[in-house]
Amino acid sequence: MIFGDKKTGVIVTGATGNQGAFHIALMNEYAKSVGGRGVVAGVTPGKAGQEVHGVPVYNSIRDALKEHDASASVLFVPAFAAGDSIMESASAGLSLVVAITEHIPVHDTMKAISYAKMNDCCVIGPNCPGLLSPGEVKLGIMPAQLFTRGHIGVISRSGTLTYEIVDELTRAGLGQSTVVGIGGDPVIGQTFTDVLTRFSEDRETKAVVIIGEVGGALEEEGAKSAEIPIVAYIAGISAPPEKRMGHAGAIIEGGEGDARSKIERLKAMGVPVAQRPSEVPRLIHNLI
């Protein structure tokens, strides 16, 4: 597994909101089932002293860290305050921020990621479902019932499409080491390249599925650097140019980033590309 394990202590920011509270409960249910530490504290400015599903809430991450040992935060704060919350996590010394929030202005994200890097803090997302290492740790909102432990890594720009493909893998007897949703925004902290580097150093991971979509060239950049066997699925072959397909980052701009040319470039690098999500398990079997 990469990014975290059972021993990872987690702080949830935006803890008292609907989403934050709901997912504190689900993350801790998962932690309990695998014997992990889970969410140890919540943070919402001005709400110190409250509890969310038994988890104490503090005004700031620094306050929470005075009472609890934690290394990661999962962020549910509203878009306008999310960049700020990423920087607060980095400044307080956390090594990992998982930013679930969608619709963060991209300039805020760019500044927050720069600041986090200066503080040796790694950002996953924004606009992502987080990550899950079956049997170890869940940081985010992925539905745990579809996952099973094994040796396949998954990196994806999407949420539900990831669950679809994880479900296909699980049904085919291919368990997962870690599944990482890197986010659907144009600018994201951890790219395919970054996560592939971690997977190639992870003894539990034998092959990786990268799930990409239209927009940018992060898939190709990742594939070029990969030192571990990979297969790919790219969504959006039917997407028209200059239209945002749900994700802020899913847009073919200036004739760049369309699915067909992405797929061709990946194939030219020798990467097997699935035409349909259901083909992914067969391509993995061919590989290992």
């Binding site: 999407s158 539900t160 499409l161 749900g246």
Partner: peptide, 16 residues
């Protein structure tokens, strides 16, 4: 669909 990726993949399957 729910989720951008899954909805796009549904569109692609229709074309397929």
């Amino acid at each position: 669909g729910n989720g951008a990726g899954l909805t796009m993949a549904t569109l692609d399957l229709i074309e397929y």
